[in-house]
Design a protein around this nucleic acid. Sequence first.
DNA 1: GACCAGGCTAACT
DNA 2: AGTTAGCATGGT
Length: 289
Amino acid sequence: MGYTYNIEYGNNYVIIKDIEDFDLSSTFDNGQCFRWNKTENDSYIGVAMNKTVEVYRDRCNLIIKNTDKKDFNDIWYRYFTLDVDYSKIKKVLSNDPFIKKSIEYSPGLRLLRQDFYETLISFILSSNNNIQRIKKIINNICMAAGNVITYENKNYYSFPDLQNLQKFTVEDFNDFGAGYRSKYLVNTIKSLCCEKPDLNMLENGSLQSARKSLQEYAGIGLKVADCILLYSGLRYDVFPADVWIRKIVCSYTNLKDCPEKIVEYAAQVYGDYAGFAQQYLFHYARFNL
DNA sequence: GACCAGGCTAACT
DNA sequence: AGTTAGCATGGT
């Protein structure tokens, strides 16, 4: 399964040599994640999985700083979907001329497998919101209840676990800037603490049942449910249809601007790779419409 | 001041 | 089942 990479394990860093299909900007600045930021040196520093790491390219190599062999194998290999064969996915999806164009625009885009609960909370915050503001709200939440992680004399804050999220009130989330979504968060966090969702069912059950069970939570509709399933790496046969996706899909098909119809179309045309198709399209749309 | 942002909920026909 | 107002906030 997956690839074998030529990897160098150093003192607090890991180098993946001659890596293909891994462009930093189109991976981190494409709206799937909210806790990665570009530095002055064109590297990216991210807080994920209770860790802070810095990632940068040196020609064909990818360097991950502030990590080691164990964390690379236990966490980052999976987080960065290094087991996924993007050349195969791109080849299949390129049968569709418009997806092909989007792939050519950002061929090094990757999906990330992020923490399920962080993804769930983050995308409740995403509704009728913009990426810049979503990042700000999430950062406020992390600063208020996350663990401090120091890296190169700067403090970073992990995404809080459910126990810590549970102590926040509607007023707290209002102070963080969540607006009318605050009550959804409090409600959903309480439900999640009370009974954990069945991740195995979400991953392996029918798509219909996975969506339906996520939509039981306050603040989660069809689009947010698909984002949660896709960006936590549970499944790739989803198609989050936000305003950008709706615009661009309607521009190259004669579909009406109706999310359910667009999702149905994507399932038929892109099948098990719909989630990847969506991500290439989204990135293209955001910077070209 | 209007419009928009990785939409959802509730209240209507 | 389909349609629509209302929703918090900050940027353009």
